[in-house]
Design a protein around this nucleic acid. Structure first.
Lengths: 330, 330
DNA sequence: CTGAAAGCGCTAACAA
DNA sequence: TTGTTAGCGCTTTCAG
């Protein structure tokens, strides 16, 4: 392996000091155009590449980088959230790197990230909070979609309770009587009702609370939604309003409805959860309980900001409200 | 601003040397469990956060970070490409940061990135190659969707010529006679036929070559596709095969076809370009000239890899083939 | 098992 | 306009 070309080499070649090279390279003042041009020419000839670690170490204002961890980046929910977060991050002058942890064990991923970024945010599944904190080795961690309890752990969670209560209320005003629910479940896992489901059951009448289908195949997918909708309508034909726990599933339900000749929203109203922009291009466009959007991303960014500044003692914990995005399907 | 807590502070507090602290923090051997535990406790109490710049500077194997620059991350084409690229990057042990350049001038963005990452790859619009190279200050640049000519600039371009020839050929075999084309154009820009259009015109018969609609409103959008399809069918009712220059436009065309009661592929065959996974969930599913996929991402990653290793002298330039993804719409 | 010394490559502050 | 002197905070030899 070749020794790296440093400013030292350029300085020697040009017969100037390292400082002069720095000035030339970074477009700083107090240097003559002639020497700058000469140095630039030499650095190119020598194949010089600055070391960002060295420069950031020496520099007073260091660039902040945060890592956003998702399950799979192919899920539009994550990519849209990433887009929102990216905007919020660059508005604050941060870099954001996106990491998907397909196979790598979560704790290992976190400790790897810990010496590459200044904060880690994402949907982390690991429930042992002490282990998470330990793996982060002092780097702030912001958990999404759950509420942290351990000291020093930050989190932004959703307020599903009020959201479902409000949604069901509004739907009733529009004539909904019998609700049905489409939930999905990771393949082969032991079923455990989600916080969403619990919030939903609190919001609807007892009969509706029974009409729940838990889709088995590929969770959160369009196919799961299609399968689930069919099963739901077979088992609970009275259903006049279907709530799917993700927009992708709702899209599958929409497709199933088309195929069965069920008019949406004429015969069955359909509501998703997530707020995917994709939901706007289906026909009919999808009404949804919107998680995504600038508000959520800004809130996350604020939490990160405080975590970055804070000495690490006080932990930020927020709960975010979910507005209803009325479109055509309900 | 507080002075930062360093290993020095911990060492002093613990009454050991800095090296011992390093050993404790990084889980290195040759240290007793007792002192490790004590040091970890102290570092937590003091709120120590390692400096990734210092550690990477001192470390022999540095982590590589590449930046992927896109127009807007809300376009599924870019987010799917990002996902592919992310896989290729993490397989190589690289970090990837995604940057969208909404307002920031491109050259400024590049020179900013130049001291934060080890390579920049993306769809860069700037045509002045010398300016690009200068802005990158020695950091390798990989241009996508165009072919670089200047020295030291890498690129991965598409081979539209053979792709369209092959596509048109295959479609003819399936009975297509009259082709129509949907292109889109940035709002308010002077129209300049794309390389895709030129390749297309070379592939079809003269009459078909006339049937081209350039959509004006939001380029590459579903709406543009819908508008364009309507105009195309009004002006060229003989058309039996529509090629849209992006999958999103094709999705809009599909919607328009449904609304006009035109059966796809029965009356009109429809083909998109991009290979979005989204195209698999429309009904009928979208046939497309696939850009996306592991092959493209791997090719890009290879180019980046060589750029990262290479002394910067030889430039890698590749052209990638586009396979046809036959689904239901054609 | 622990410590001392010597950098990693660059920039800030000052002096010339 | 240029050079000098100190670091930035950490890890890597190599001794002890």
């Amino acid at each position: 392996m070749q020794r790296r070309v440093t400013i030292e080499d350029i300085a020697r070649e040009a017969g100037v000091s390292r400082q002069t090279v720095t000035r030339a390279m970074n477009g700083m003042p107090r240097i003559s155009e002639a020497t700058r041009a000469r140095i630039l020419e030499i650095s190119e000839r020598l194949g010089y590449r600055p070391s960002r670690f060295a420069s950031n170490l020496a520099r007073t204002s260091k660039t902040k980088t945060i890592a956003f961890v998702v399950d799979s980046f192919r899920n539009p929910y994550y990519s849209e959230l990433a887009a929102d977060l990216l905007d919020a991050a660059s508005a604050r002058g941060w870099q954001m790197t996106i990491v998907s942890h397909e196979d790598e064990p979560e704790l290992q991923l976190i400790s790897r990230l810990a010496n590459q970024v200044d904060a880690v945010v994402g949907y982390l599944g690991q429930t042992d909070e002490a282990a998470l904190t330990a793996a982060a080795r002092g780097v702030p961690l912001v958990l999404l979609g759950r509420t942290a309890t351990a000291e020093g752990l930050h989190s932004v969670d959703f307020d599903f309770g009020p959201a479902f209560a409000h949604l069901v209320d509004e739907l009733r005003k529009r004539g909904s009587k019998r609700f049905g629910l489409l939930e999905s479940q990771p393949l082969g896992a032991v079923y455990k009702p989600s916080t969403r489901r619990i919030a939903y059951e609190d919001a609807v009448d007892p009969v509706s609370a029974e009409a729940v289908v838990v889709c088995e195949a590929p969770p959160q997918s369009v196919d799961a939604g299609e399968l689930g909708f069919n099963e739901l309508m077979d088992r609970f034909p009275e259903t006049d309003t279907v709530i799917a726990f993700s927009d992708l599933m709702a899209m599958g339900a929409l497709r199933a409805a088309h195929r069965r000749g069920i008019d949406v929203p004429g015969q069955v109203r359909l509501v998703g959860v997530d707020g995917l922009s994709l939901g706007a291009v289906t026909s009919p466009a999808l009404t949804t309980l919107a998680i995504l959007g600038t508000a959520f991303a800004e809130q996350i960014a604020d939490v990160i900001g405080e975590a970055l500044d804070g000495a690490g003692d006080s932990a930020e914990r927020r709960r975010t409200a979910l507005p209803i995005l009325w479109r055509e399907s309900a």
